[in-house]
Nucleic acid binder design. Structure first.
Length: 220
DNA sequence: ATCCGGATCGCCT
DNA sequence: GGCGATCCGGATG
């Protein structure tokens, strides 16, 4: 055995590139939602690292958007939604699930991007342990509550900097406009027809493909 | 593949 | 007191 035979268990692959800076998020929320497609969401926990490529997002524009939590104003729940761009807004819903958002625009605006689906990259074994009911790999992260469970994102991450914390977003490989589709948002009752959902065409990890009538190509 | 109901609880009215 | 930016399992076509 040689002197430095101790195996390095960690393959340090960094396919995700640099973490996105706050200035990335301090822009129109629809633009941020669209450009987050292809970015990589990473969550480090004591158990290890779990990450995935973002393939589906929704824009929530602020108090003038009736579907956005910002309609309630600044409350205990929405405190971080009205905070600095580039931080996490994590909320609890239906007494069961966490949902992860990236805050956009300037402080006090109350807008964010909901990440609805990712394509697993690292930590699939961890994800399986955290979501034992998932039958296929794609069921691990094809929904906003599912991906939070798979990455172990909880209210403990609320307000964390996505540039420098245990929960980060990195510039991945950009998705060309020709691969992006737009549709109404899912699961809401107000402003239900606004085309604010962005997803990668034909990607099997998207939460669900709406009836083809409701999705259109992305036209900047 | 699609539809439907139940679970479950923190937050706001 | 009522309502979700959801998930899951079971029934149905």
């Amino acid at each position: 055995m040689t002197a430095n035979a101790a195996p390095r268990a960690r393959r340090s692959r960094l396919p995700e590139g640099a973490a996105l800076k706050p200035s990335f998020y301090d822009r129109d929320t629809e633009i941020v939602a669209r450009e987050l497609l292809g970015a990589v969401l990473v969550c480090e926990s004591p158990d290890g690292r779990a990450s995935g490529r973002i393939v589906e997002t929704e824009a929530y524009l602020g108090p003038h958007d009736e579907a956005c939590h910002a309609v309630a104003g600044v409350t205990a729940r929405t405190k971080w939604l009205f905070g600095e761009p580039g931080r996490a807004y994590v909320y609890y819903i239906y007494g069961a699930h966490w949902c992860f958002n990236a805050v956009t625009r300037e402080v006090g605006h109350g807008s964010a991007v909901l990440v609805r689906a990712i394509e697993p990259i690292d930590g699939i074994r961890l994800m399986r342990g955290r979501r034992p009911r998932a039958k296929r790999d794609r069921d691990l992260t094809n929904g906003p509550g599912k991906l939070c469970a798979a990455l172990a994102i909880t209210g403990a991450h609320n307000g964390l900097s996505l540039t420098r914390s245990s929960l980060t977003v990195h510039r991945g490989s950009p998705v060309p406009d020709s691969r992006v589709l737009v549709s109404p948002r899912i699961g809401i009752t107000r402003a239900a027809d606004w085309p604010m959902r962005f997803f990668v065409a034909d990607n099997p990890h998207v939460s669900r493909t709406p009836s083809s009538m409701t999705a259109r190509p992305y036209a900047p």
